[in-house]
């Protein structure tokens, strides 16, 4: 198992390298450069800017520079900015350069956006888990009755509805018509700015979790030990909480990884609707303005999230089901 986990983690490195390489050449293949404006800049200015950011060099050399700036080993005294004698290795530099738009460090831009994206993602995750599991359990306990059909309908419809369509309808009803919530923005702790983005982002995963919970709980309810628990006279809530839900958790846990990845990478649409300054929004604007550093940074960030989510899925599978033998 340990060997498998280590190999799985090491596999992430070539994956990220491949993602970075493909993105690098694709993004340079996009028509137009970062300094093509509506109002044409003078040739000399353009040439100077290109030289400053190494854009005048051959593409392969730029690629080499980019890779080197990512993996160049740096030492602790460089990180801390003070000399502490011969430095110990601190890790790769992970320098993504600066944004052409405002000259700020790409790493700073991403970490700022990350705060907002993580707040949104985590709260949506919480919403999805609570709502999804409740719906799933209620449906399973009322198998083939009205509440079950209602829940199944909701979860099928919820997996089919695009999040920006949900967002649009929510805004029309609750912001424009009823005026309960704000149309734009995100502010942690202010419910007027939080409820609609969370519901828009979290409804699809909630529906998905509801589906899986329902199936899993139904399967557990058919097991012999549940009949035994009931036969020995345990109260219904004990049977449900301790015997059923606890044992039906494994399939639900295994989908948490992809759901988390979906919430982080899918948030850019919701961020766009509500004008929230998260990581995804930077990616969208950066492609529009050919802001190479920001495109690379956000793509690598998203790919890392996806890679680790896949890693967690594989590990939970191996851990939860001993029949899956990884050699």
């Amino acid at each position: 198992m340990t060997g498998y986990v280590i190999r799985r983690i090491l596999w992430i490195i070539p994956v990220l390298w491949a993602v970075a390489t493909v993105t690098f050449f694709l993004m340079h293949a996009v028509e137009g450069g970062p300094f093509d404006r509506e109002k044409e800049l003078p040739e000399a200015v353009k040439a100077n800017l290109a030289a400053k950011y190494n854009l005048d060099k051959p593409l392969v050399e730029q690629y080499g520079l980019f890779l080197w700036n990512m993996v160049e080993p740096i030492t602790y005294d460089k990180v801390l900015g003070v000399g502490l004698g011969p430095g110990k290795l601190a890790g790769p530099k992970l320098d993504l350069g600066v944004s052409f738009e405002n000259g700020r460090q790409v790493n700073t831009i991403i970490s700022e956006g990350l705060t907002v994206s993580v707040q949104l993602g985590m709260t949506a995750f919480l919403y999805a888990v609570v709502v999804g599991m409740t719906l799933g359990v209620v449906a399973a306990l009322n198998h083939n009755r009205f509440l079950d059909y209602l829940s199944v309908f909701f979860s099928t419809a919820g997996t089919a509805m695009p999040n920006f369509i949900i967002a649009v309808f929510l805004v029309v009803i609750f912001s424009v018509q009823l005026g309960w919530f704000d149309v734009l923005g995100w502010e942690f702790g202010n419910y007027r700015k939080m409820v609609l983005p969370i519901i828009s982002l979290g409804t699809l995963p909630a529906a998905y979790i509801a589906r899986i919970t329902r199936a899993s709980v139904l399967e557990v309810l058919g097991q012999d030990y549940i009949r035994t628990a009931r036969a020995k006279g345990l109260q219904e809530w004990v049977v449900v909480l301790r015997h059923t839900i606890k044992n039906s958790m494994v399939p639900i846990l295994t989908v948490m990884g992809p759901i988390f990845a979906f919430l982080v990478t899918g948030s850019f649409i919701v961020e766009r609707v509500f004008a929230i300054n998260g990581v995804g929004r930077h990616f969208v604007t950066a492609i529009g303005s050919r802001d190479y550093g920001v495109i690379m940074g956000t793509t690598i960030f998203f790919a890392t999230v996806v890679a680790f989510a896949n890693l967690i899925v594989d590990i939970t599978y191996a851990w939860s089901d001993p029949r899956i033998r990884y050699k």
């Binding site: 994956v15 990220l16 491949a18 993602v19 493909v22 993105t23 694709l26 993004m27 996009v30 990478t265 899918g266 850019f268 649409i269 990616f283 969208v284 492609i287 495109i295 956000t298 793509t299 998203f302 790919a303 999230v305 996806v306 890679a307 896949n310």
Partner: peptide
């Protein structure tokens, strides 16, 4: 599979 698909489609 490792590519975030919507971002890749945009690119």
């Amino acid at each position: 599979y490792a590519f975030p698909d919507l971002l890749f489609i945009i690119l």
